[in-house]
Design a protein around this nucleic acid. Structure first.
Lengths: 208, 208
DNA sequence: AAGTTTTTTAATCATTTGATTAAAATCACC
DNA sequence: GGTGATTTTAATCAAATGATTAAAAAACTT
């Protein structure tokens, strides 16, 4: 009855049905959010019959949860190792945070808006599953920040570096269209920020 | 047939029906976004019959447009005069941008996520209506930034100051719950940023 | 090739949801 | 207080939408 792959296409040139649905779901959910997404949109984007969605994933919500978990991981999971690394300096960490995010955002520019937009419906649940609390309290980064600036809450600096890195993508329609930039030009600006943000972050930490 | 106020309650202690609906719509739309909002949610939040919504505003979409325009104005309109003011220094402008936003965000913490979240469906349309292009090209702020840092695109600094100011509210569930903060504590941190962000912005502009 | 299981399809269901309608209630004005 | 306009209500509609079903098609096993 339920999905059990029997054979994998020897030449795996196209994806399995299950993977096609997931791929389409990633695309549509990320672009429009959960509520604005119709299961028919996903089926159409995948070029498949609507019933297959329920056949493989039981419900829109179940499918969404899978995608959401992936995306939350993509947004937060990838910097955990960077933040926790005890063998890099504060400066190195900031460089790596920016690099890691900009690399990811090149392929997933609307990820932050999607994740943070959906997160408002389940703030506590996902924060718990993520273990953000631990990162924000015990990580090497936080300890280094505490040492460097003893009288300022370390979360301020995390807000700054994430804000400088992620916010341009969250406000992208405004910035890009507002400044009359092509996609290429916007991307070029983001590439510039790769080197600029760490410098700015360092300047912020060097005040006084 | 259509709405025409005949009398205004002499002691305007409670709002007109029309205003009650708008108020409820502001609340629900801002909190859940357009797609996740049911007209019945709005009617319930207003304590009114569902049909009144269509009686006064014809459709969910029309009502949304009214609210959206207000909110877009609240998010972008309020800094236009600050940005355009030819009689303030760059530093003063940055202070005022931060102050203006933090004042507004105290009462409307989920405004940025709402507006930017909805904006993705109509990126060009609203950007045009807003005249963002003009602000991002000819404003006094942009000209001052160009003079101060001739070899860096001024939009970088606008992204920075807006990112540092708005992003904490966009990622609020993560920051607040992740750091185990009460609402009061979060607000206190934001109050600290009122003085810190202008200093950081100045430091960023003073590199080299 | 026959038989079995798995996958896919078209058709349909039940619920939700935005909107409408006709009647009832309220209000303005004389 | 009666009359006409305005506002409010309960009931209902039609379309959209998530989900299911039964049958057809395809794939696999022997």
């Amino acid at each position: 009855m339920m999905a059990k792959k029997k054979q994998e296409n020897p030449e795996a040139k196209d994806l399995s049905t299950e993977e096609k649905i997931k791929e389409a779901a990633r695309e549509v959910f990320t672009k429009k959010g959960y509520a604005a997404t119709r299961t028919r949109d996903i089926a159409e984007a995948a070029g498949l019959n609507l019933a297959l969605l329920n056949y493989y994933f039981r419900s829109k919500e179940k499918l969404f949860e899978i995608v959401m978990m992936e995306k939350v991981q993509a947004l937060f999971g990838i910097i955990a190792p960077v933040i926790n690394d005890p063998d890099t300096t504060l400066q190195e960490k900031m460089e790596r945070i920016v690099h890691t995010y900009l690399d990811m955002l090149t392929n997933n520019p609307d990820l932050p808006l999607f994740v943070l937009g959906e997160l408002r419906y389940q703030p506590e649940e996902f924060a718990r599953k993520l273990g953000v609390a631990k990162l924000l309290r015990e990580s090497a980064l936080v300890q280094q920040l505490r040492e460097r600036k003893k009288n300022i809450h370390p979360i301020h600096f995390i807000m700054n570096i994430l804000g400088m890195t992620l916010f341009p993508f969250i406000g992208r329609p405004v910035f890009q269209h507002g400044a009359g930039l092509s996609q290429k030009e916007f991307e070029a600006l983001m590439e510039e920020r790769r080197k600029l943000i760490p410098k700015w972050a360092e300047a912020i930490l060097s005040i006084r």
